[in-house]
């Protein structure tokens, strides 16, 4: 149950693009055609599914406070979490390179379709964001980390697929000249994000009374509140951002 919940939550509720705007640069740059968007989206799923569990292991056994205990009791006090940025990005850059080499060697056809996107991915915020969110939300097991990586990858994939399809169609519409291209894409993404916000009620059923004392993994419950009481909006947004 926990797995299913996390999976759907990372696809819809905490969608990388519509809730956190991660990976917007490549989202805007590569969404002109559906075919290329699918290629990049697949590559993102692939890389997230590898790097999130890997960084989970790093975090659990090297970076967290007291994580070095397995090396002996005298290491139990070390807290290396300030190194996590550099460790995560190094893992990601290395893995992307490695994946590129392996794919090129064993599956040239896959390499031809993913190949040009792989280097782009090392600097895609969605990848690093996945690892950092995994760390700040304290995801408990390796299985859940893998699940989270795949889920957020699929969420990103769906988003870029949708915007690419819309952009292909909108080329035939009469958009005001200054809005053409970038401007209208921003506004459409905004509207899509509003749509995706309605998934916020998906996991709680939407109607249950909300217990203020419950500590959620992140802003799930808070999001519910925002939709109901506009006066609380400012405070709840602060809450969601801090968690």
């Amino acid at each position: 149950m926990e797995h299913i919940e996390l999976f759907f939550k990372s696809i819809f509720v905490d969608n990388m693009i519509f809730a956190y705007f991660l990976g917007m640069c490549s989202y805007l740059a590569v969404s002109k055609k559906v075919a290329t968007a699918v290629g990049l989206g697949a590559a993102v799923i692939f890389v997230l599914a590898i790097t999130v569990p890997l960084n989970w292991l790093l975090d659990q056994y090297i970076l967290q406070e007291g994580a070095l205990k397995w090396m002996g009791p005298e290491y139990a006090d070390y807290d290396l979490s300030f190194l996590s940025f550099i460790m995560f990005i190094a893992t990601i850059a290395t893995m992307v390179q490695l994946v590129e080499i392996v794919v090129e060697k064993f599956s040239p056809s896959l390499y031809n379709s993913l190949g040009i996107f792989l280097p782009l991915i090392a600097v895609n915020c969605a990848i690093l964001g996945g690892s950092l969110f995994m760390q700040s939300r304290e995801i408990a097991t390796l299985g859940l980390a893998l699940n989270y990586g795949i889920g957020s990858g699929i969420g990103w994939f769906l988003a870029i697929l949708a915007i690419a399809a819309i952009r292909e169609k909108i080329r035939y519409s009469n958009v005001p000249a200054p809005l053409r291209g970038l401007g209208i894409t921003f506004i459409i993404t905004g509207l899509m994000a509003i749509g995706f916000m309605s998934f916020g009620g998906m996991l709680t059923g939407g109607d249950e009374p909300i217990d203020d004392n419950v500590e959620t993994v992140d802003g799930m419950v808070n999001k519910q509140k925002e939709l109901k009481t506009s006066d609380l909006v400012v405070e709840t947004i602060n809450d969601t951002d801090t968690k």
């Binding site: 705007f21 200054p178 809005l179 921003f186 916000m197």
Partner: peptide, 17 residues
């Protein structure tokens, strides 16, 4: 709410262009 950030930037682009 998050979506408005996108729309505000869209409007800035509109004005600038």
């Amino acid at each position: 709410l998050p979506p408005m950030a996108l729309i505000v930037i869209g409007v800035i682009i509109w004005v600038q262009r």
